[in-house]
Simulated scan of single mutants.
Amino acid sequence: MDYRFHAGSIPLLVSMPHVGTDVPDDIAAGMTPAATEKADTDWHLVKLYDFLGALGASTLSARWSRYVIDLNRPPENTNLYPGQDTTGLCPVDTFHREPLYLEGRQPSQAEVERRLAAYWQPYHTQLRAELDRLLALHGKVVLWDAHSIASVVPRFFEGKLPDLNFGTADGASCDKSMTDAIAGVARAGERFTVAVNGRFKGGHITRFYGKPEQGVHAIQLEMCQSTYMDETAPFGYREDRAAEVQPLLRQLVQAAADWVRK
């Protein structure tokens, strides 16, 4: 199976497109040692969000590494942040500009098209199908796109990121009242720093599927990995840090669920 999926009962789908770590053998054969470390993975998010089943949420998480193909990039590979550096649909380097492929082994356009069909499309077909199922049952639905990233990545931003970065395509992907409800919960604790539509405004999934006029309200949360794990290899899960942020994370998701069911 190209993804892991669980159908829930409430109008909330949590997508985790960058948690995958598998790389097919034929692709791995052309990759560098830097690629095998998979440093740019959204590590441990499934564990951090392990309360979703109890809430009744649907979940969809990736099997394949973003180094195979990035499920949160548009299929035509347009830059989501024009004028800014970013990695592409089939990345050729890491966030720290380390080559992912051996000399002469970068994917051709034909190979990119093959990966789109084989690895990208199945995830998006399931995502669309579950949104449609939940819409038919409930009339509207929240799509929560869950991500994490190292807190300092000079290639993409200066200094340290805020701990919790919400993106709604500058307000286009969901109702403002939902953003306000979620951000209000995030800021109330004062333990973690918060940004809304700052450096991260939501990727392809948030922007493409978030259509509030059609009942789909999408929001992306990009968390600093420093809030719950070690940011250097072997990227260990930190129970002590996770114990601080996980209760808030559950409150944030619950706020989205409460909003959509009103």
Rank of each mutant, 00 (worst) to 15 (best):
M1R: 10
H6Y: 11
S9V: 15
I10F: 11
S15K: 07
P24R: 09
A29P: 09
A29W: 11
G30T: 03
T32H: 11
A34Q: 11
T36K: 15
T36I: 04
E37G: 01
A39M: 07
F51A: 02
S58Y: 05
T59F: 05
T59Y: 03
L60Y: 06
I69E: 05
L71A: 00
E76Y: 01
Y81S: 14
Q84F: 00
D85P: 09
P91H: 13
F95I: 02
E98L: 13
R105G: 07
Q106W: 04
R114S: 13
R115A: 05
L116R: 13
A117I: 06
Y119Q: 00
W120V: 03
Y123R: 01
T125G: 06
Q126R: 10
Q126D: 06
L131T: 07
D132E: 14
L135T: 01
G139A: 04
G139E: 12
V142Q: 05
A146E: 02
A150D: 14
V153I: 15
P154H: 07
F156H: 00
E158D: 15
G159K: 11
N165W: 13
D170H: 15
A172V: 03
A172R: 15
M178V: 12
T179S: 15
D180C: 09
V185L: 02
R187V: 09
R187L: 09
R191S: 12
F192D: 08
V196D: 06
K211H: 12
Q220S: 15
E222H: 01
C224Y: 03
G236E: 15
E239C: 03
R241Y: 04
A243L: 06
V245P: 09
L248K: 08
L249A: 08
D258E: 10
W259Q: 04
V260M: 06
R261T: 15
R261C: 14
R261S: 14
